[in-house]
Structure formats: structure tokens, C-alpha cells
Design a protein around this nucleic acid. Structure first.
Lengths: 185, 185
DNA sequence: CGTCGCATGTAACCAGTTACATGATTAA
DNA sequence: TTAATCATGTAACTGGTTACATGCGACG
């Protein structure tokens, strides 16, 4: 799913500026499975505007760049939903954290302790963030967004549980092998 | 984590060819959180070879390109482990599947049913794959790989449980809104 | 007779990240 | 006074994907 399409996904829920779209990616209910920074969002909206998938109204402000409020068009809606009806393909999960833990046996126990402790705190914060999301992205008429939000919460809780349970074992693995090195080929 | 480093991560567990490295990314115990196709692996190994992070021995074969068996060097090990001691940063999870489900209210119920049913089958297969991994990547001396493998299994089981529980609700959301459309701004 | 597995690689392409460019207002 | 929020955007870079190029052997 390219950034243009995810932007349309935000705009279908209500008009927004580029800045607000980015906030939706960062704090919105699908923050944990879609993203986009300024450097990709602004060009993406421009790419959506030229064929007419979105329209733009400028609101002048004092001492700031004019707000550009984008609205999705029928063409934009069609593009979004036809994309959504295509095979979603596999999820992509990339984790340097797990990659590092994989080699816990060859890393200092303090480091393993540190990254796991930090990650546990991160997960707790993510859960809180998803729990506290207000309704600006969730219309009552639409049930799915709420379900997805709950799914996100359950996902992080599952991650939290797994990591918390195994924390001591990982640290022990690192301690046990403090003076060994990883298997030499 | 760039492909060069993940390749070193495979090689630290034993010598391998480019082809075998790719298999490790696809079926190995960290297949669910790291990756790389041929188009990225071959150039990555070449980039690791020139400064001396890996060495290469050619084994001629009949009627096939010579096998190039790579071995990690001390420099390669150092590069790997020093990278592993850096802040792993956030995990990246991108899911077109969840993105589509988010708009279930505006999509055909049959489609939602189809993608959820398929995803449940996918998760079951992933679990089986991780359960059946043999020890070629898991040395008994090293505990962490096994822990990570179990973590992968628990992760997919959690995903499976969440999706299975909510399946009917998502389909109902799609059915209920069959003649409505998503909120118009 | 087709497709999967083995086995290497290159080149064009594309999408997204990072850094740059600008700058007032407000809360800690 | 420092950092965060608001608000837009461009340009260079980087890194990975896709398609191309080659081709035999085994299995069904």
C-alpha cells in the first residue's frame, strides 16, 4: 500500500491537511500498521491531486504557511476502495529488536536487559495510546475501526506478555554465555 | 538493519551460499522478522566481501554456476555484534490486510470473509512452519534462537486467536453496511 | 511436459527516508 | 531557554524490488 493510498484512507474519514494526515499516521487507530513522514506525505498528496483524487482549499494564516485542506473526491474514493479489494498480500514485520535478541547468547547480559526493559515500557505506552484514542477517527456508524483498535491493543498485550515471560530466560542465556562466543563455523 | 548485516547474521551460524542465505530468510527461525530477496542478497554479500567481512570459496559444479560458499571473518563478526549493540529502534509492522479490514464497513462482506479466511489459513501454516524448523539454525549451546522461535509461534497464535474471534464481527460490520457507504465528509 | 529446486548475478526502477529551508507561538 | 506544536515543502540519497539473463535435473 503506497503512501498515496493510505493518505486517501485518512481523507475518506474527513478533510485534513498534510500535517493532520501525518498525525493520523502517528497517533491514529492504524498507527501500528501504516505510516508516512512529511517527506513522503506531501509529494503523495500532490500526486493524488493532479489526477483529481483530492481537491484542495487554501486557508490563509498569519505568520504561517497557508493551511491546505484536502478533501477526497469520488475518483479518490474509487481508487481507495478498488485498491482495498485487491489481494492484501503478506504483512511485513521487521524487527531489529528480535534480530538482536536472537543473538542474545553472544551479547552482554546488561544490554539484553536494557533493550527488553525499554521495549516493555514501549509496549505499555503503545497500549495506553491506543486505549486513549478519541473518536475523531472512529465514527459510530462504522464498527471496523473500533475492532481494529481493539485488535491493536490485544496485539501489544500479547507481545508484552510474551516478552515479559521470556525476559529472564533471555538474560540468563546472555549471562551463561558471557565468556563463550557464538558457535564458530 | 540492512541486508548486509542480516546476511552476516546468517553466516555467523555457519557457512552458506547466497542461495542458502535466502532460504534462511524464507524458512529459518527469523523468517518472520527479517528478509531479503536475491536482488538484495547478492549485492549485499559482495559489499561484505570487499572490506573483508566475509571470505568466499568457489566449488565448481557441472552444468551449474559455481557454488560460492561464504564464511564470516572476525571483522564480519565485529561488524555484526557492534550493530547489534546499537539501539534497535521501533519495530516496523505494515499490513495491507488490517488496512483493508479498517474499511470493512465500506467493503463487500464476501471480500472480508475471503481475506480473513485466507489469513487464518496463512497463520496456521506459519505456525506449522516454525514448529517444524529443524536444528540447522539452532545450536544447542545457544538458547536464544529457540526462545525466538517459540516467540514467533506464540505471536502467530495470538494473531490467529484475535482474528478468529473477531471474524464474525467484521463480516457483520460489512453486511450491516452493505447499502450504506462510509461516512462522507 | 510443466514446474519446482538449484545457482548465480545485473540493471533499471521506484518509493520512501533524511536533511535542508523557514519561522512564529506556547508551554515547561 | 529549550523544546514542542503548528505548517509547508524540496532535493539528494539510499536501499530494496522487479525484471531480465541463463540453464540443467528431478519429480509428478
Amino acid at each position: 500500500m503506497d503512501v498515496k493510498t493510505t493518505c486517501l484512507g485518512v481523507l475518506v474519514m474527513g478533510n485534513a491537511t498534510g500535517y493532520e494526515i501525518r498525525k493520523a499516521f502517528e497517533y491514529g487507530p492504524f498507527a501500528h500498521f501504516a505510516d508516512g513522514g512529511f517527506g513522503s506525505i506531501y509529494p503523495a498528496i500532490a500526486k493524488a491531486e493532479s489526477p483529481g483524487m483530492v481537491t484542495c482549499k487554501k486557508h490563509k494564516q498569519q505568520k504561517r504557511p497557508a493551511k491546505k485542506i484536502y478533501a477526497i473526491t469520488d475518483m479518490g474514493r474509487e481508487h481507495l476502495f478498488s485498491t482495498l479489494k485487491k489481494d492484501p498480500g503478506e504483512d511485513k514485520f521487521r524487527s531489529n529488536f528480535l534480530f538482536a535478541l536472537y543473538y542474545a547468547d553472544a551479547l552482554p547480559a546488561e544490554w539484553i536487559d536494557e533493550i527488553i526493559t525499554k521495549r516493555i515500557a514501549d509496549y505499555k505506552q503503545k497500549i495506553e495510546c491506543l486505549v486513549n484514542i478519541n473518536n475523531q477517527y472512529c465514527d459510530d456508524k462504522n464498527i471496523a475501526p473500533t475492532l481494529i483498535r481493539h485488535k491493536g491493543i490485544e496485539y501489544y498485550k500479547a507481545m508484552l506478555g510474551i516478552i515479559s515471560n521470556k525476559k529472564d530466560k533471555f538474560i540468563a542465556a546472555a549471562i551463561d554465555n558471557r565468556n563463550n562466543n557464538i558457535k564458530q563455523p
